[in-house]
Design a protein around this nucleic acid. Structure first.
Length: 277
DNA sequence: CCCCAGTCCTGCGGGC
DNA sequence: TGCCCGCAGGACTGGG
């Protein structure tokens, strides 16, 4: 589930290691398949040990640690990945560990129960190729109505499906797409092509409102309890959800319609037929 | 190019 | 009570 708000919370959570020097790197033994790592362990270790963390960043749904040597460590948590600072969690799923000297934490662990995520070390050039505007759209926090129209306005896809396209806009995932469209009052099955400028304006405004509030609440921890910030604390935005996973409940907006669940490209969508047109 | 189904993986909860 | 199956949804692959 980590989408923009959760990944941004993870990024902020690892800020204490800025300035720290990496003194040890290891991929931890897991009983099943080891986590995907690029390059392999020896090259990864050679290039990061002795380097200093210069700054943190976020590329869509990935956390980036820039090193003083010009390389970047990229954590892509996919469904169940977490970054933990000096916080032991079930060691069975601790996948990668960095140890530091001279920063605000001794240890950073990449933890991932399902193991669908990955950790990469990229040069600046590789980073540009992988996460440049060709591969990853503008971050959802800098999108405007004009940018949405430009990047999605001619698409025939349903707007909910299109909002998940990371090449068009980076950071929105399945949960927040439903939340954003409910706040914007737009039916998730509407084709992008039919949307008028005022509706793109509503989407742009709703996206900012939902994502910024979700960041303030430190993301959503769903009923499976997996998502945690870097200090192993749950998020709080799940209590502010308007429609996500609320099929059958009364719409919080009109207080009349029932929230429906439909499936679009194999993903659940939640919406209120009465107030989303 | 555009779009979609299938795939990876584990834990949980519903139905029987 | 225990088992089985569907579901959760990140991003990538292969194909129409």
């Amino acid at each position: 589930m980590p989408e923009l708000p959760e990944v941004e919370t993870m990024r902020r959570g690892v800020e204490p290691i800025v300035g720290a020097k990496i003194i040890a790197f290891e991929r931890l033994p897991c009983p099943r398949k080891p986590i995907a790592l690029t390059p392999g362990v020896p090259a990864f270790r050679r290039r990061v040990e002795g380097a200093r963390i210069e700054r943190t960043a976020r590329a869509g749904k990935r956390v980036v640690l820039w090193l003083d040597r010009g390389d970047a460590i990229i954590f892509e948590p996919r469904m169940t990945g977490l970054l933990l600072l000096d916080e032991p969690l079930d060691p069975l799923y601790a996948r990668v560990r960095f140890q530091f000297r001279g920063g605000g934490a001794k240890e950073l662990v990449y933890w991932d129960r399902r193991g669908l995520g990955n950790v990469r070390l990229l040069s600046e050039r590789e980073f540009e190729q992988t996460f440049g505007l060709d591969a990853l759209g503008p971050d959802a926090l800098v999108m405007t109505a004009e940018l949405y129209r430009e990047r999605l306005g001619r698409s025939q896809r349903a707007v909910k499906v299109a909002l998940l396209d990371q090449r068009a806009v980076a950071g929105i995932g399945n949960l927040y797409a439903s939340e954003i469209l409910h706040l914007a009052g737009i039916h998730p099955e509407r084709s992008c092509r039919e949307l008028k400028p005022a509706q793109w304006q509503a989407i742009a405004a709703a996206a900012l409102e939902v994502l910024e509030l979700a960041i303030r609440y430190e993301g959503s921890t769903l009923s499976d309890g997996t998502y945690r910030n870097a200090l192993n604390k749950s998020g709080g935005y799940q209590n502010q959800h308007r429609v996500y996973a609320k099929a059958g409940e009364t719409c919080p907006r009109c207080q009349k319609g029932a929230i429906e669940r439909i499936v679009q490209t194999q993903r659940s969508t939640f919406f209120c037929r009465r107030c989303q047109k």
